[in-house]
Structure formats: structure tokens, C-alpha cells
Nucleic acid binder design. Structure first.
Length: 259
DNA sequence: GAGTTTGAAACT
DNA sequence: CAGTTTCAAACTC
């Protein structure tokens, strides 16, 4: 296994990779022994990234961690090439034919889809693309962006910091792995906006974080609500109206105790 | 599949 | 900072 990290076509660290940091142990269990060895070789390189990005906004260093600089991203993006989720890609290959994709084809990694029932969401009408669980690429929904070149947060692919795939139906896509400069510029602009807005403790690209919804009409019970989408209850951070997605103070627990 | 609704993101 | 516009996804028919 000879993975070269010189390729920098992959232009940013995607959320699934960051989820991998947290869920590495679980995923390790799913690898064959020979693959584990490869993973171990990459662990040391990846650990620094994990330290930088996790956990989000939960300590005093969150500010500096979340406002990491563009150049740091460039350094870290090399690690993405070694990411397990890339190695486990199961059919949603990016539009581009990046060199690391070619190298991956030469590996002995099993590319059968890994279906992890533990992390599979409850079946629902919509397969929401959220990554607060170790979502595999095979579960990622394609985007349909038509006007933003997939370089704004409207784009679910860009928002999750992953490249658009062949399944995406976007037009004039710059998030295809062949426009690294444009992508990096877009990321940089968003980071600048965050800082201007004094959102130092936010990471717009961390879709695991929920800032709080502002739903007014849907009672936070439809897929428009970011809390609902993430299977999370609305909190004091939300500014929603007529919310039906708040934690219920059920009397069930009390009844159980009595029993 | 087309049109409408919705709320996040972007803009002013 | 608040109001408005734009956008893409969710939803309805």
C-alpha cells in the first residue's frame, strides 16, 4: 500500500472525515486486518486534524480552532486522501478522475457497501443527509444546484465539504475536484463572513452543529427544520414558533419509578 | 414532473 | 441589525 500524499486536488476536509475522527474505533472494527495496517499508518497524520477540529465549540480553544487559516486547510487536505471514507467510496465517486481515485482502484480495499444498522436512521420519507452520525458516502444525497456553482452553503455537498458526485444534477459545478482554487476561495470567503459576523465560535461547515432553527410555520415537524432533520429536539437556541419539537416532560419516567 | 412552500443563506 | 431577496430542498398535487 503506497499512498502518496502529494496530490492536493481534494481541496478541503469534509465532515464525514471529521466524523471519522470520532468514530474511528467503530469503523476500525469494520476493516479487514490488512486494511487496518494501512489505517494505522495514517492515524498519526490524521490525529492532528482531529485535535484541531474536535470537539466543535466546546472549549476555550474553539475560537482559534474554528477559524483555522486557509493555509492550514491546504496542509490538512493532504490527509483527506488517506481518509477511510474515501477508501470506502461505494459508487458515488466524484465527477473528476482524481489521481487518488485511480490509486485507490489499485488497492485491495473491499469496496462493498458497508451497511451499519446501528447508525442507520429510522426509515422516513426523506433520507436526510446529515452527518451527525457516521454516514457513509453511499447514503449521501446528490445536490441539484443550478446557480451557485456548488460554492455556497446552499449546496449540501459543499456544505458538508465533499465533492459533488456523478449522481448530482448540478450545473456548472465548481465543486467537482477540478476547481480547487475556486473552492478554496469560496471557503475562505465564508470564513471571513463568519468572522465579520462575530461568529467566531461557529463553523459553518460543521453540519453536526445545530445553531437553532427559526421555523415559523412548520412547527419544527418537517424537513425544513434543521433540528428535526437531525433528529434533535429544539432548544433555547431556537427562535421557532409553535414548536412541536421540544423535549417533552413526560410523566412516563415518573410512572416507571413508581412501579 | 411541475409548481408551491419553506427556511437557510446571502444580500442590502 | 433588520428587512429583503435568493436559493435549493421539501412538499403537494
Amino acid at each position: 500500500m503506497n499512498i502518496q500524499s502529494q496530490n492536493n486536488s481534494a481541496s478541503y476536509i469534509s465532515s464525514p472525515e471529521r466524523s471519522w475522527c470520532k468514530n474511528k474505533q467503530m469503523m476500525d472494527d469494520e476493516f479487514e486486518p490488512q486494511d487496518k495496517q494501512m489505517l494505522d499508518e495514517t492515524n498519526s497524520k490524521f490525529q492532528s486534524q482531529c485535535l484541531i477540529e474536535d470537539p466543535p465549540m466546546q472549549n476555550e480553544n474553539a475560537l482559534s480552532q474554528n477559524s483555522f487559516h486557509y493555509e492550514e486547510q491546504q496542509q490538512m487536505m493532504q490527509a483527506e486522501i488517506l481518509s477511510p471514507s474515501k477508501l470506502l467510496r461505494t459508487g458515488n465517486e466524484p465527477k473528476s478522475t482524481l489521481s487518488f481515485d485511480i490509486k485507490l482502484e489499485q488497492t485491495s480495499i473491499q469496496e462493498e457497501p458497508i451497511v451499519n444498522s446501528r447508525t442507520r436512521r429510522k426509515a422516513s420519507k426523506a433520507n436526510y443527509n446529515v452527518d451527525d452520525s457516521p454516514t457513509m458516502d453511499s447514503e449521501i444525497r446528490p445536490c441539484h444546484c443550478s446557480k451557485t456553482n456548488c460554492l455556497q452553503l446552499y449546496c449540501s455537498c459543499f456544505h458538508n465539504r465533499r465533492q459533488c458526485t456523478q449522481e448530482c444534477k448540478c450545473s456548472e459545478c465548481f465543486n467537482d475536484g477540478q476547481h480547487s482554487d475556486e473552492v478554496l476561495k469560496a471557503i475562505e470567503q465564508i470564513k471571513i463572513k463568519e468572522q465579520r459576523a462575530s461568529h467566531h465560535d461557529l463553523d459553518s461547515f460543521d453540519t453536526r452543529q445545530v445553531w437553532g432553527c427559526k421555523c415559523k410555520k412548520t412547527q419544527c415537524m418537517k424537513g425544513y427544520c434543521e433540528c428535526f432533520i437531525r433528529n434533535k429536539k429544539c432548544s433555547s437556541h431556537c427562535q421557532c414558533s409553535n414548536c412541536q419539537n421540544k423535549k417533552q416532560k413526560t410523566s412516563i419516567n415518573k410512572k416507571i419509578k413508581k412501579i
